[in-house]
Design a protein around this nucleic acid. Structure first.
Length: 871
DNA sequence: TTAATCACG
DNA sequence: ACGTACGTGATTAAC
């Protein structure tokens, strides 16, 4: 027979969770971190204790007796953060949905409820666990009442347990005496003043000896040290009041029926809906797989004989919609050589209550299976997969128009997520939970099934958000373009790269030696921590602290010291060389394939704004700004008989801004100007075009950049090393010159605050949940994001259109020239010599005519025998 | 796994 | 009063 009860201090645990976890929001912008943390802690406790009863106590937000007393003493409590406040009613609803009893009582604090309940339950002979983040509650500990204090340490929650003996052990006082201890030492977090000049040490000594403040007061003359004796005499009233404040009422009168606290199943349907809405994905796995899912699985079939497989493909021919997946066998194979990867088989689903897992094997060859799948895809009304780009390595798809990449669709609907797996989509769109431990064939069937079922739901949502055109006309065709780019890769001269690396290596060794000599000791220069200690403590350079963990040794800090201290200059140089060597020289070498080419990945579902990202390796951040780094571009070369053509948009983001804002002045400027920063300077600073100084131009350029980033006076002042006031003046002058921009940015932020998202010219959305934050910094960040995302995103849309156009024309004419890289506003083509002039024409046309704006889109183009020359 | 740093647009 | 520019990815050290 279990006779255990768990009592939770609701607000205290919410608070712990709120401050212990990073800010989380669901897609509606509701903050959820405290709720999530609370539930995690609660589940952990319940699993450990397996109690029969559970009750969560909350404070009522009317002033209570103890607060009122304190308010008279000194002001009021700090108000609760808005992000936390909004989570309080939600956790109560969630608990209710799980059948957990919550109590609150006007005029009583949660402490009093907990104290009274723990006493009542103990008297009934029950074992009691009280969960709180507050040490106050330690006074409730007995042999049968355990106080449990959860601590979040690096993401993991550990719980400290206190029975009466543990309190005594740790604090040298009994739980009862703990009240007196608090009365003397006070507790800032619980607004208990205590006696001035008596701290933890003294208080413990006094209470351990005299056991109560009253007894201590009776012997006040004997108290040591004299300071404490004096304090207690002079502030006796404070001690008495503090004791009253610190005492938890264990005989409060409120209605409570134990049977109501009896635990049933927490995992109810209602609770599931809440968890779904709150997007607590890993908590959802606690719910039993739904009955509906069990029914779905009845229709799953594993096939490994040719005859049945043939039947299935016959049935699938001409289906309205086909969902599919391809799975590998055994260990992962390098994606570069996906063609050679060992295939385990495929998943296939083309009707709502059946899904197949077809394995390769004796009767069924890989080749045959892929051919059938390709045919099926071709004849389908719609062919749906997750991560279609990866699958293209296996399939021959003739007409991309009927293809639907569910990963990309899910990304467009919410670009802020980290991943878009079929499990996620099944849960979000189909409300099906997939058991992680399910057998391979079941998972394979689920993936195909999810692709089949979710595509129409995703498509409807895309239409609802007016992203259907963006999806069908830009993102889906782009999948094919990116696949070809990845397959093409870019040729790299391994020998030259190796030589470059070894040169850097000797330079690094030289600098290392000099730095150790200057410092008078050896240390790891790559460790910011060690470096900080050497520079700012051992060598006593000025410029002290900056980060939480120690000194900042970032470049902008060191640059200020470099002119005066040769060692700092050497460190900066060392950093530069070692970055080049580790990331670029050595880093890139690891990715050169047998074909002497690097096949970097272009990711389509990573960024919040719609840009692409490049990984394994990242070819979008190859050095260019510094000559030394720029040299590395010489190792990127075209195939024999080919040349590079590199084209980049000139200030595409600013042009997008000019168009979207409709600011006549800026539009005019772009229609005429050769040099937009100069013309901006001329207009903002009211000087003739010819008389603009280089300083003025630099400033104007910085303002132009700032505008695109979502301007702030602080940011601009940092960039230009001027005061905030001066920066604010620049911004004001800029907006005076271009009033259309000011109103556009204001309108964008306003729209974002109303709708919760911003939109690009082509309908791409980015949610901005930060805008509803009560935290100034977070909200300001949201405002900058709202200003930047439509601009950066529209530019991304435009170059995507250009890429598709270029790709289509090159392919359509069966040219040998190929697109190899995209770097946000730049395209690199490996052009077959005889096709060079045609390629240049195509590239310019497709880029300039990707979209018609109110300002011209200008493209700079260069050719060369390597990337260094072509840029 | 996270924080710091630095490469790019 | 708050304390930052927007968007990425790779490497390294240190927990």
């Amino acid at each position: 027979m279990s006779n255990k009860i768990v009592l939770i201090d609701g607000h205290s645990i919410l608070n712990r969770a709120f401050y212990g976890l990073p800010d989380l929001t669901n897609s509606e912008g509701l903050h959820t971190n405290a709720i999530y943390g609370f539930l995690t802690i609660m589940f952990k406790i319940l699993e450990e204790e397996k109690p029969e009863y559970l009750t969560v106590a909350f404070d009522v937000h009317a002033p209570t007796f103890r607060h009122k007393m304190y308010a008279e003493y000194k002001g009021t409590r700090k108000p609760m953060a808005e992000e936390l406040r909004q989570q309080v009613p939600v956790i109560k609803e969630v608990l209710h949905a799980m059948g957990v009893l919550t109590i609150e009582c006007a005029g009583l604090e949660a402490d009093d409820l907990l104290g009274t309940l723990s006493k009542r339950c103990e008297e009934k002979g029950m074992e009691v666990s009280v969960i709180s983040g507050d040490r106050d509650l330690l006074q409730l500990a007995t042999d049968h009442v355990k106080i449990r204090i959860p601590k979040t340490k690096q993401g993991r929650t550990e719980v400290e347990d206190y029975y009466a003996k543990d309190v005594k052990e740790k604090y040298q006082v009994t739980p009862q005496e703990f009240i007196d201890l608090k009365a003397l030492m006070g507790d800032a977090s619980d607004n208990i003043p205590g006696v001035p000049s008596i701290g933890e040490k003294t208080a413990t000594k006094i209470i351990a000896e005299y056991h109560s403040i009253e007894n201590a007061h009776d012997h006040v003359e004997e108290l040591k040290p004299p300071r404490a004796s004096k304090a207690l005499r002079e502030h006796w009233d404070m001690a008495v009041m503090s004791k009253k404040l610190a005492t938890i009422n264990v005989t409060a009168d409120f209605p409570y029926e134990l049977y109501e606290a009896k635990l049933g199943s927490l995992y109810t349907e209602e609770a599931y809906d809440y968890f779904q809405k709150l997007q607590f994905k890993n908590l959802l796995s606690r719910f039993d797989v739904t009955k509906a899912a069990e029914k779905v699985e009845e229709g799953f079939l594993e096939i490994s004989d040719l005859y049945t497989a043939k039947q299935v493909f016959l049935e699938a021919a001409g289906a309205e919609c086909v969902g599919a997946c391809i799975f590998k066998n055994g260990k992962d194979v390098l994606p570069l050589f996906a063609d050679q990867a060992q295939m385990g088989g495929i998943g296939l689903c083309f009707q709502k209550d059946k899904s197949y897992c077809i394995r390769t094997g004796e009767g069924i060859s890989e080749k045959w299976l892929l051919e059938r799948l390709s045919e099926t895809a071709g004849s389908a009304g719609r062919f749906v997969m997750f991560d279609l780009k990866e699958a293209l390595a296996y399939l021959r798809l003739e007409d991309p128009k009927n293809c639907f990449d569910a990963t990309v669709a899910a990304y467009l609907l919410n670009p802020l997520k980290n991943n878009y797996t079929y499990e996620d989509v099944a849960r979000e769109q189909l409300e099906i939970l997939i058991d992680e431990k399910a057998k391979e064939q079941v998972k394979v069937c689920y993936e195909a099934y999810t692709a089949y079922r979710a595509s129409s739901l995703l498509w409807d949502k895309l239409k609802e958000c007016q992203m259907d055109r963006l999806f069908a006309d830009i993102e889906m065709p782009l999948v094919f373009t990116l696949y070809d780019m990845e397959k093409n890769g870019v040729k790299v001269e391994a020998e030259a790269l190796k030589f470059y690396g070894s040169q850097l290596g000797s330079k690094i060794a030289e600098l290392e030696k000099e730095i150790y000599e200057d410092a008078g000791e050896t240390f790891n220069i790559n460790s910011p921590k060690q470096l900080g200690v050497v520079l700012f403590e051992n060598m006593k350079l000025p410029g002290g602290k900056k980060t939480k963990t120690g000194y900042s040794t970032a470049a902008d800090v060191l640059e200020k010291l470099a002119p005066d201290y040769p060692i700092v200059a050497k460190i900066l140089e060392y950093r530069q060389y070692s970055k080049l060597k580790s990331t670029y020289a050595d880093g890139l070498a690891n990715y050169i394939g047998e074909d002497k080419r690097i096949h970097s990945k272009f990711n389509q579902t990573i960024t919040a704004t719609g840009r692409l990202s490049s990984t394994e390796p990242n070819l979008q951040n190859i050095p260019v700004r510094m000559e030394l780094g720029r040299l590395i571009r010489k190792v990127f070369i075209p195939e024999d008989g080919y040349v590079f053509v590199d084209a980049d948009y000139s200030q595409i983001e600013l042009r997008v801004l000019a168009h979207c804002s409709g600011d006549q002045n800026l539009i005019e400027a772009y229609r005429e100007a050769e040099d937009i920063h100069r013309i901006t300077a001329s207009q903002v600073f009211h000087v003739p075009f010819e008389e603009v100084t280089s300083q003025q131009r630099r400033n104007a350029k910085a303002v132009n950049f700032g505008i695109v980033y979502g301007i702030s006076s602080f940011g601009l002042s940092q960039d230009l090393s001027i005061t905030r006031k001066e920066a604010a003046q620049y911004i004001e002058d800029y907006f005076k010159t271009y009033p259309g921009i000011k109103s556009f940015l204001d309108d964008t932020v306003k729209h974002a605050k109303e709708m919760g998202y911003v939109v690009t010219l082509f309908g791409r959305r980015r949610p901005v949940p930060e805008l509803s934050s009560s935290n100034f910094m977070q909200r300001s960040f949201g405002e900058r994001v709202a200003m930047n995302a439509p601009i950066q995103g529209t530019a991304a849309d435009i170059i995507k259109i250009a890429m598709i156009g270029v790709h289509k024309r090159l392919k359509g004419r069966q040219m040998k020239s190929r697109l190899v890289l995209q770097v946000h506003d730049e395209l690199l083509i490996e052009a077959y010599q005889p096709e060079l002039s045609e390629v240049k024409e195509i590239l310019r046309e497709e880029m300039e005519k990707a979209v018609s704006l109110d300002v011209p889109l200008e493209v700079d183009m260069h050719t060369g025998e390597n990337w260094y020359e072509a840029k």
